[in-house]
Design a protein around this nucleic acid. Structure first.
Lengths: 237, 237
DNA sequence: GCGCATATTTGGTATGTACCAAATGGTGGC
DNA sequence: GCCACCATTTGGTACATACCAAATATGCGC
């Protein structure tokens, strides 16, 4: 049991319990109503709501109110199953929207990771992926034109993995993945219908061929409350 | 570049830049001083500090002040390298403190994961691990007495992996790991010298033998700003 | 019914104030 | 030189208030 010696903690526990007992579903009462209910100032209430948000129990949509979180999506970044595949397998309705595609020079971090000099061009796409109509992740994919000739000539709104397999014959690849918590700022926060400074999880992925040459660098910005990273493996001591 | 149309965002960016340029190291000026510097109210300043905290740039120690974060520890939960090993390899000074050891009945979640009924006993230890004198993770390890007979008779302040290998001959195991963001509450928050409701990363691990029988269930509560999860793997499409 | 302008509600931002408890720094006694 | 005590500083909690902008509900004209 958590500490309940403070007003915000009491409000937090009260709402938390209401959610656990499913007495609260869908959207919560307005902040001003909740203030009256628990007899606290709005800043105190918002502190409680903020913690429930960090716990992944509730979230805010635009400026319209607070809602109880749907269940989390389970995601194994080491598996090469597609977004479509693992979301539907878990009973979600996925959708993807390509926001932007451009050819550009790499930033310092990408140039370093892909061992490119600053002049080499990069094909980048930005897409927003949703489950059940809720935007959960913004993906930024960067492909090295040097290692994937003419990749910018293809339709990148289709499956990238199929393209890599069929056109570039990358059947076996090395994955190099990092996960860390982060802060979501505009414009990424806006794509995720959340606010400037919201909490997120950042997944960084470097994809290499079997010789170890990196040809792709991805950044995924997830809603922190939408995601559970899962890994399964066999190990020997 | 992030949105800077609001006061808190301007303060955030200003301090963020100071840190990036290493003009700020060690501890920050007091909140009241910073309020005067940037001419904002304390609550506005604290909003900015909170976001910098979420970004992993600064952290608070007890009630004594704000400090610039040290670099993150890289950790691959799928590797079976010990805490001692991977921390020293990254140039940190690790230490571990065993807080508690007890024999108890499993909670619902553990009973379910380890396929135990409510009567079977469980040997649990709680330990706090630090790098460079900073507590970074609270580990709760739970061992099934049924599958690891007399485990509570051993000294569990020593290396657990050595014990599993030499005494119980578990040379090959299956790992089942989940990572998600969470909120740290007392008393765990206190072990990590942080505050009730602080942001964290939760790593859950189920360990099985090669037949798939689970004998260990662990929960790790990490400071969100101390950790970067890393995974490397070879995949084929 | 439908579309559009308007009023209301809602969360987001911001200020100021007050008090508390823990941590820290200093001071004096031994 | 060490320790106990005290004053000060610091962040943590909590309140009340005000205004803004976006989202939503309302109602009118057609």
């Amino acid at each position: 049991m958590s500490d309940t010696s403070y007003a915000y903690a009491q409000v937090r526990e009260a709402i938390s319990q209401q959610i656990a007992e499913q007495k609260l579903t869908g959207n919560l009462p307005s902040e001003r109503e909740l203030c009256a209910t628990y007899d606290v100032a709005r800043s105190t209430l918002r502190q409680a709501l903020g913690q429930l948000e960090h716990m992944g129990l509730i979230y805010r949509k635009n400026r319209s109110g607070w809602y109880v979180c749907p269940r989390k999506l389970k995601y194994d970044p080491m598996q090469h199953t597609s977004f479509l595949q693992y979301t539907t397998a878990q009973g979600f309705q996925p959708s993807t929207k390509l926001v932007e595609q451009k050819k550009q020079k790499p930033c310092k971090e990408i140039a370093n990771a892909l061992e490119l000099d600053g002049r080499t061009s990069l094909t980048s796409i930005l897409r927003v992926r949703s489950v059940d109509g809720r935007a959960v992740v913004v993906e930024e994919l960067n492909f090295s034109n040097k290692h994937l000739p003419n990749i910018d000539k293809h339709d990148l709104s289709l499956s990238i993995s199929v393209l890599l397999k069929n056109t570039y014959h990358h059947h076996n690849v090395l994955y190099d993945i990092a996960v860390e918590s982060c802060c979501l700022f505009n414009p990424i926060a806006q794509y995720l219908n959340t606010y400037d400074g919201a909490l997120g999880l950042k997944v960084t992925r470097i994809v290499r061929d079997l010789e170890g040459t990196a040809f792709e660098f991805d950044r995924e910005y997830w809603r922190h409350d939408a995601l559970m990273i899962e890994n399964k493996a066999k190990l020997h001591f």
